[in-house]
Design a protein around this nucleic acid. Structure first.
Lengths: 146, 146
DNA sequence: TATTGTTATACTCTATAACTATA
DNA sequence: TATAGTTATAGAGTATAACAATA
């Protein structure tokens, strides 16, 4: 048995590796956010704002109680990174939108995830394509709310 | 161009996918921990205790200030999941070890990461081997402290 | 009645700074 | 003097419960 024939990992081994990389990736994101004075949750909220999203929708996306979103958006709004807008169709709803500065800030956070970037840079184009395909297969199962 | 020829993803696409799965995996871990009355950080600390680890070492592993570890270990110890032991060689050091109940609890948390398990179950043996190999390549870069 | 967003409360995590006991 | 662990403090995230405005 030479080094060129990788053995099948056990489920436990694969789970541990996935967990370790998930954690490392999350810490990399948190560190990049911190350099911009953002907590990881604030940055995560900002990264969800490709368009207007109701407060309640943000709670669902962040997997937390709706009452928490008030404070998180308050702090982002005080810094001028997001805005609350009334919903034209339902006066109970407030839609949150990122300001230009908000979009620019989260763009920089993503660009500064050094550990994640340098890790992906170790793969060649074919490996990246393979990895992307496999991760896309995992996505539906992993994001399903059980 | 048919469906059988995957195109090369951009770096941004791959980064977004990795970030989304990292987050989903972390939320799955947090949800499993919560079912056992543990916060995600408490569970993460517990998962590091394969052997005795000094308080200071836990701070490094959790990427947080040493002062935080006191409270986290306090709460785990109050529940009987970990113990503090004096270090034979250095009387300043306290080593933290998981109790039998602590080991059993973190084992169950891992087993109950339903979203992660069901995601990995969608891959066949060959795909899992390929994924494992690629993720092992990513590990050094991702866990490097920049 | 049900839903949206908010407030009040209590607990946990977090970094900073200062302390103690060892080395 | 340097290091390990702790304490005190303040800011932020978290769930629960209750509330006003709107549907």
């Amino acid at each position: 048995m030479t080094a060129t024939a990788p053995r099948t990992p056990t489920k436990a081994q694969l789970l541990e590796l996935v967990a370790a990389l998930g954690t490392a990736q999350w810490q990399d994101f948190a560190a990049a956010a911190a350099r911009h004075g953002l907590t990881s949750v604030q940055a995560k909220l900002l990264s969800q704002l490709k368009g207007p999203v109701p407060m309640r929708g943000l709670a669902t996306l962040l997997v937390c109680d709706a009452s928490n979103v008030t404070g998180i958006v308050d702090r982002l709004e005080a810094r001028g990174l997001v805005r609350r807008e009334p919903d034209p169709a339902d006066r109970r709803v407030k839609n949150v939108v990122a300001t230009d500065e908000g979009h620019e800030t989260i763009r920089r956070v993503r660009a500064e995830m050094q550990a994640t970037h340098s890790a992906l840079d170790t793969l060649d184009e074919e490996e990246r394509t393979t990895l992307y395909g496999l991760l896309e297969r995992l996505r539906p199962g992993l994001e399903h709310r059980g």
